[in-house]
Design a protein around this nucleic acid. Structure first.
Length: 331
DNA sequence: TGGATTTGACCCGA
DNA sequence: TCGGGTCAAATCCA
């Protein structure tokens, strides 16, 4: 992948290096912390903040840090549901301007920071999943489930198997909203859902809002590991791998394959659950960015492939790790 | 025939 | 009371 450095990055070289070095240490600490199962607590606040700092610098958006922090804190409240239709449309679009970090990634950082900052473990487990009652039409309205949206110029295969379960005309919306749930909802209890709706002003654009996390375990079919970014309980840690350190490459990840390829010439808008809307262009997309939740890690540990992932983590301490190479590139 | 989609009903939160 | 989100019977389709 081409790695282009914005002017702002160059001007902040020293700061970036500082943050990366710190990030490296924190990543190492994370690895240790994870082994001790102690990642879900306030101690990670500094870690998340450090990564956010670094990423903001890389983005040339350091000045936005306060804004992002505000958004992170604000996101502890409802992200969907009632009046006005789920996802907040009022967010400003932060676009272009040498954003090397994809919006998706920023969103993940966002989600990770939220979890490490605002939620106690109990709160996370309580807030992060929707609970539904039995019976026709009986449910508890989703209030605090993690969600994120993507605007795409057409249907994009995100690597998951979805089944449509509803279709509803939304008040003040020209186009009906389609409701999808994970095909594995019943056989594996996967709670992931998504809504797809045409954008009113741009009918050719589909706005997909994802809710919940895939807990279905066909990782290698669905790339669950890679993009179940808003996993509850998270303590999700945003881990950015260089291509060489990818668990699998783009072709092996249907989601990235479809997502990246479909976005080669298109602008993708990924909207966080807050008002903060971020825009990225494909040339800024980093397919090697991963957000891995402890659940996913455990699933991998128990199912085998974890060895590969663990080795990826271990590479943070290796001579050829991403931080070293980034620093070398800076120098 | 089994899985996916459509569609109207139902329930809950705001 | 209204509107959003989900259920489940009916229908479609490979």
């Amino acid at each position: 992948m081409e790695w282009s450095w914005s002017d702002s990055v160059l001007s902040n070289r020293e700061r970036v290096m500082e943050e990366l070095i710190q990030g490296r240490e924190l990543a190492s600490q994370f690895s240790t912390a994870y082994d001790n199962r102690s990642v879900v607590n306030g101690d990670d606040e500094g870690s998340a903040e450090g990564f956010v700092n670094t990423l903001l610098i890389l983005n040339g958006k350091e000045s936005d840090q306060e804004f992002v922090s505000d958004q992170i804190q604000g996101n502890s409240s409802s992200v969907s549901g009632g009046g006005g239709g789920g996802v907040n449309d009022g967010g400003s679009v932060v676009s272009g301007g040498g954003a090397d970090l994809s919006s998706w990634d920023a969103n993940h950082v966002h989600a990770a920071a939220i979890k490490s900052e605002d939620y106690t473990e109990e709160e996370i487990s309580c807030k992060s999943t929707s609970t539904f009652k039995d019976g026709r039409g009986s449910y508890k309205r989703r209030k605090t489930t993690d969600s994120w949206t993507r605007d795409t110029p057409g249907l994009i295969d995100d690597g998951h198997a979805w089944r449509k379960y509803g279709n509803k005309v939304i008040h003040n919306e020209k186009h009906p909203r389609n409701y999808f749930r994970c095909t594995h909802k019943f056989d594996q209890g996967c709670k992931a859902t998504k809504h797809v709706q045409q954008v009113q002003d741009h009918p050719s654009v589909l706005r997909t809002t994802y809710y919940g996390t895939h807990t279905c375990r066909d990782y290698f079919k669905t790339s669950d590991l890679v993009l179940d970014c808003t996993n509850h309980r998270d303590s999700s840690m945003f881990i950015s791998f260089d291509n060489a350190n990818c668990l699998t490459n783009k072709q092996e990840h249907p989601f990235f394959g479809s997502f990246a390829s479909s976005s080669v010439n298109e602008e993708l808008i990924v909207k966080a659950t807050s008002d903060h809307t971020l825009t990225s262009h494909d040339n800024h997309w980093l397919p090697s960015d991963y957000l891995v939740s402890p659940d996913d890690l455990m699933a991998f540990k128990s199912s085998g492939p974890v060895s590969g992932f663990s080795s990826s983590i271990d590479q943070y301490d290796g001579d050829d790790d991403v931080f070293s190479r980034i620093i070398a590139e800076l120098i």
